[in-house]
């Protein structure tokens, strides 16, 4: 739908960063900051975002930004928030942006601590379903059946045998006021969710699907398309939870068969070409169907 020029203000995450061609994460970050505005301090764990945005002397960040180590972004954020309280600077808000490896796996204890303490931090997980910064190893966020470098498809393997950790539910179980999922394919929805989160206090969590052309291995111009297919297949349900209850979902106009999503990504090629994988393919479809039912995604 064409619209009038936005006349938007200068970006808070500027050009010259070293993300790969078509990086969904880089796109997400610019829009996250557009939604938060400039009165934020951003904390990031080690990962793709840290690597491509912090070569010494060349920072794209126009907000104060801190990276410390891999597994402690939530605790760093807690410390920053505590200092802001102590200094009566609470109008400045704290936002953490990390990848799924940092969030689902290595920083999970730190995240849980931050959530349980009720610290005033918006934690955003940019989820591309593997450790992309090190070449695409399996994480707790890797989807069922995806091939990764540490769990490849092979003669006796169909990729990941476990389902993706349901982190939004786990975060919600901490009793936090706001949990949402979003996708770079729907930037307006993403920004609206960040804005909504910024109106609330305490720990809040947004998980953004950020397709990765380099490791999912699809042409770089299809980043948003891949995001749309994920959402419209039901594999990436978009919803909001207020105080632990689903308050809103993004309805699907047309349900896309999962094969349409899987066939364009190398990490799922074994499901497409192998006869022996038909059962797994059906299991992935069933998972999408379960999501559609659970979140009532069909209009």
């Amino acid at each position: 739908m064409p619209k009038k020029p936005t006349g938007k203000t200068e970006s808070l995450f500027v050009s010259g960063h070293r993300a790969c061609h078509g990086c969904g994460l880089a796109l997400a970050v610019r829009h996250i900051l557009e939604a938060t505005g400039s009165n934020v301090i951003v904390v990031s764990p080690t990962g793709c975002l840290e690597t491509f945005s912090s070569p010494y002397g060349f920072s794209p960040w126009r907000v104060p930004w801190i990276h410390h180590v891999f597994e402690n972004a939530p605790a760093i954020a807690s410390g920053v928030a505590a200092a802001l309280r102590a200094q009566h600077r609470e109008s400045t808000r704290v936002v953490a942006i990390g990848g799924d490896g940092a969030t689902f796996d290595i920083g999970f204890g730190s995240l849980s601590g931050m959530l349980e303490r009720g610290d005033d931090v918006l934690y955003i997980c940019a989820d591309n379903g593997a450790y992309m910064n090190t070449g695409g190893q399996r994480s707790g966020a890797t989807p069922f059946c995806a091939a990764t470098t540490t769990h490849p498809a092979g003669k006796t393997s169909l990729g990941k045998t476990e389902r993706k950790k349901d982190l939004p539910e786990i975060v919600a179980a901490h009793g936090v006021p706001y949990v949402a999922t979003a996708s770079v394919a729907y930037l307006g929805d993403l920004k609206q969710k960040v804005k909504k989160a910024m109106t609330l206090h305490g720990p809040r969590y947004i998980q953004i699907d950020t397709p990765c052309p380099s490791v999912w291995n699809f042409p770089s111009h299809l980043t948003l398309e891949m995001g749309r297919l994920g959402v419209n297949s039901g594999l990436v349900p978009l919803f909001e939870m207020l105080d632990g209850k689903i308050s809103k979902v993004k309805k699907l106009r047309v349900k896309v068969p999962v094969i349409e999503y899987l066939k364009q990504q190398k990490r799922f090629q074994h499901l497409v070409v192998k006869e022996a994988s038909r059962g797994s393919l059906m299991a992935v479809q069933e998972q999408a169907d379960r999501n559609i039912e659970k979140y009532k995604l069909m209009a």
Binding site: I41, V43, I66, H68, V69, E71, N72, P74, A75, I76, A77, S78, G79, V80, A81, A82, A83, L84, A86, Q87, G109, S110, S112, G113, E116
Partner: peptide
């Protein structure tokens, strides 16, 4: 919830 986070919290606070 851990000493790892204890050191991290004071690091974050110090940076702020």
């Amino acid at each position: 919830e851990s000493e790892f986070s204890a050191a991290s919290v004071v690091s974050g606070a110090s940076t702020a």
